[in-house]
Design a protein around this nucleic acid. Sequence first.
DNA 1: ACTTTCTTTTACGTAAAAGTCAATTTTTTG
DNA 2: CAAAAAATTGACTTTTACGTAAAAGAAAGT
Lengths: 128, 128
Amino acid sequence: MHKYFTITELTREFGVSTRTLRFYEDEGLIHPERRGRTRLFRSADRHLIKEILRGRRLGFTINEIREIIEIYKGPPGELGQLQLMMTRVAEKRKQLNQKRQDIEDTLSELDHVDEACLARLAELRVGS
Amino acid sequence: MHKYFTITELTREFGVSTRTLRFYEDEGLIHPERRGRTRLFRSADRHLIKEILRGRRLGFTINEIREIIEIYKGPPGELGQLQLMMTRVAEKRKQLNQKRQDIEDTLSELDHVDEACLARLAELRVGS
DNA sequence: ACTTTCTTTTACGTAAAAGTCAATTTTTTG
DNA sequence: CAAAAAATTGACTTTTACGTAAAAGAAAGT
């Protein structure tokens, strides 16, 4: 079960360029193996890419995405580190809740716009 | 009720710089009045700024924000324009729903991390 | 073996979204 | 009304997140 992905497979799957994936590697977000000079991506990398792109869609910067990814790497052993991590999780949660609220607000304004459009359409049909 | 806001009042309220607000004006997103050269913001501008920042938090580009703002400007009269607008609303809604899904996914991963942290904490308390 | 197609590295380029600085107004306040 | 504080404009700089091009090594089909 050691399926490898080539870089172009992944670029096609996710609709990003090779440059982008290499950039993420330079940034230390993913760590594909090498056979000679060629990169070999495993499903762990593939999953990381998914998470990176998710963060990107949400408007997180690379550094913020890095933070989130590091959080995912699982809880550390030491107490202080654990507490620090839980603080960070709380912070991210707060940001995400803010974004969620922003989305709800925007969606509800779009609803109003939609209603106004429908009303105007109805007017047009009756014939103004 | 013609309350005007000065630029610094607004920068303080929203935590942005004057440069930022001028930038938004240059981009045609807001249109403060002028008394001489000084900008006078009305509550309509203030509200627009809120929406701009909301879009910014969601990772929309200035152009995307501009699109959203233009949508808010109310339905046009002509049929073709109306249909175009409703298409655009549908697109934005789709983007927002994607973002919402991304948020849910991320939040639930953070939940797992949190649980793992708590579990580890419990272990530590028992004494490993 | 040859051509085509991938891939890599290196390096420079760029667009978006402001930040920063400097030189003037303009406004406010003592 | 003079001095200080705030605002404006314009130019230049910065950061982020890649794009693009060149040159060359590797793989794979014919």
